[in-house]
Design a protein around this nucleic acid. Structure first.
Lengths: 343, 343
DNA sequence: AGACGTTTCGAAAACGTTATCGATATCGAT
DNA sequence: ATCGATATCGATAACGTTTTCGAAACGTCT
């Protein structure tokens, strides 16, 4: 069974050349065997497979994808691996099982250069050579036409661009704000999301609509930027909550911001929900285990990811997909909202 | 500013050849410019950079990593993207910021072949060509010496293998079991984890130790396999909970199993924690939001991931790292455990 | 003007793989 | 024995990039 060629290249990977040499055949023949293509004798095939087994050879994804046209790998590009994107990732991954595609998640967080446009870099670096298609989460730029199919989750503002999927931000924001209004709140603040994302703009829009419906005047002083980040929210929240006429409720554009508000409220000695009601958006896992458990608008993150993958596979198969898909958001009442305190 | 060569290759990616042609220089020159190497005139460099900008060229990660020796990308290999591995991933990713390494997460879940040994395949496919080092989560096989540095989280059983990191399974299991004993439980069942992982064996060991300390006889009938999966736990739980002398408490080897027990208990009409106490292990996000919120042994998942990354970077820099690192597990009491019902 | 060092550039090879296609071996039929 | 069809295999090129190294151009000094 063992060949007379030295079997163990202690350093470096086992390449197809090693296998070919050990099996006494040419490199292309080994390639044919491992890829199960027609045109190689049964005896040769058997011998090659034995050597492959013996040396522990596996084809290099990089080299083969450089030569092949498709890799059967789809990439999901995220800025960083935090709760939101990772919940989507779970959905994508679950939906990918059985489709014949493997999932590669790439964090394009740039630590050196400009924080914007990382997707174009990452996508360019991977597209066409390593991945057949991509799902981009909360893109920071509107993607130009790329060489591979792309689906964006929670898309960037602006017309054109790839197929997108998100949940009903306007409707969700209206529900969230209405929930607060129904609890008797009148001074309701809003922590904005990342200004370049459509979702952030739409949530502010929903907030305004709901105020208007209830006949509450919009007060620009009650709207601050939180950038969808807990850290960025802190200063804004501190300003809002130390005002003489501080709001009795805050609608944060996402849960991370809402958690930031909770933290600041705790620092300031404000009780939630007795003194201040807080509602978020997303329903990331941390929301349920926060103190107090956060009332929020739940996005079907898992489904968003799963449907994004399905859309991408459709595209890869050459089918058309809707330009935009929207899933509903649902109010989840926990313990961070309550009736407004008596004036 | 614009060149007279057609600037827009509508299909396919922009390659270094396109840039070279458009800039009127050779391919190697473009390579030198974009990599900032010495030996190219300032004027030439400027012209090339303009064309790069104009065409939106980015080097192909695949092609360059095939030629280069290092890619500055580290891979984290997981069987699937579920809560446990994804929490680790967050830790890894957070720790990677600022190290100069980017993180690529690869789900090696095989849908066709054998469910075991996926890491060897995936690792081989990526190692040495696409990633400089790897973190493997709950490996299913003991990795042989590979061509790149590897750190394993929650390692496979057996001697040798790569550097590993995990949390104190024996101590954690003892604490968990002791918690139940202190609540007055005497018939305490155990749902085992994945038998090939050291953590599963050590948790059973801790369970037994704790019983022995309390003078409770070990009953093999009360130990079943759950494989760390909710689905696999169901049958085992049903068997256990429909026995005439059913246990009053269950220590599940991880939270997924514990959640599976909760589900079966609910189906059977058992109240938790009044009729049955359940404790898990891991403290994944779902634990806090379960009904009832799950008492569990918290693993510092974020830190495990972060430290794994640090170890890997140390290895990549040529430094030595401890062969094994262990972090503590901590009891988190929520609402799924209570005093044993009166006999 | 000649010799020599320096700068700038490109030709060629290489990384590991796969696709194409032509060469050889084998075989059955005439 | 010759022919043609078929099976099997390998030489070669190609994917996009980087590295090495030699050639050419240029400037400086005697």
């Amino acid at each position: 069974m063992s060949t007379d060629v030295e079997p163990s290249p202690l350093l470096g990977r086992v390449t197809i050349t090693d296998v070919a040499r050990a099996a006494g055949v040419s490199v292309p023949t080994v390639s044919k065997v491992v890829n199960g293509r027609y045109g190689v004798a049964a005896a040769t095939s058997k011998r090659v497979l034995e050597v492959v087994e013996e040396l522990g050879y596996e084809t290099s994804l990089v080299a083969s994808s450089l030569r092949r046209r498709q890799t059967n790998v789809i990439g999901i590009l995220v800025a960083e691996f935090e709760s939101f994107s990772v919940e989507l990732l779970k959905g994508v991954s679950a939906a990918a099982a059985g489709t014949g595609y493997e999932v590669l998640a790439y964090s394009g967080l740039v630590t050196d250069g400009s924080p914007t446009g990382w997707e174009r870099r990452s996508l360019s670096r991977l597209a066409g050579t390593l991945i057949d298609g991509a799902i981009i989460v909360t893109p920071t730029v509107l993607m130009p036409t790329t060489s591979i199919p792309v689906v964006a989750i929670d898309p960037h503002t602006g017309p054109g661009g790839p197929s997108t999927i998100d949940s009903d931000s306007v409707g969700g924001a209206r529900s969230a704000t209405r929930h607060l209004i129904e609890l008797g709140h009148r001074r309701i603040a809003h922590i904005r999301g990342r200004g370049d994302l459509a979702s952030a703009q739409l949530r502010e829009e929903g907030y305004r609509q709901s105020l208007a419906e209830a006949g509450i005047a919009f007060d620009p002083e009650l709207v601050r930027d939180g950038g969808y980040k807990a850290a960025l929210t802190s200063d804004a929240a501190r300003e809002l909550l130390t005002r003489a006429d501080r709001p009795t409720a805050v609608f944060a554009a996402n849960d991370m911001s809402a958690l930031g508000v909770l933290k600041v409220a705790a620092e300031l000695g404000l009780r939630v929900p007795e003194d201040l009601s807080v509602i978020g958006f997303d329903d990331i896992p941390e929301a349920a285990s926060a103190t107090p458990p956060l009332t929020t608008m739940a996005q079907p993150l898992h489904d968003l990811g799963a449907q994004a993958l399905q859309m991408l596979v459709q595209l890869l198969d050459g089918h058309d997909v809707p330009n935009h898909v929207q899933l509903p958001a649902k109010l989840v009442v926990r313990a961070s909202t309550a009736a407004a305190p008596a004036a």
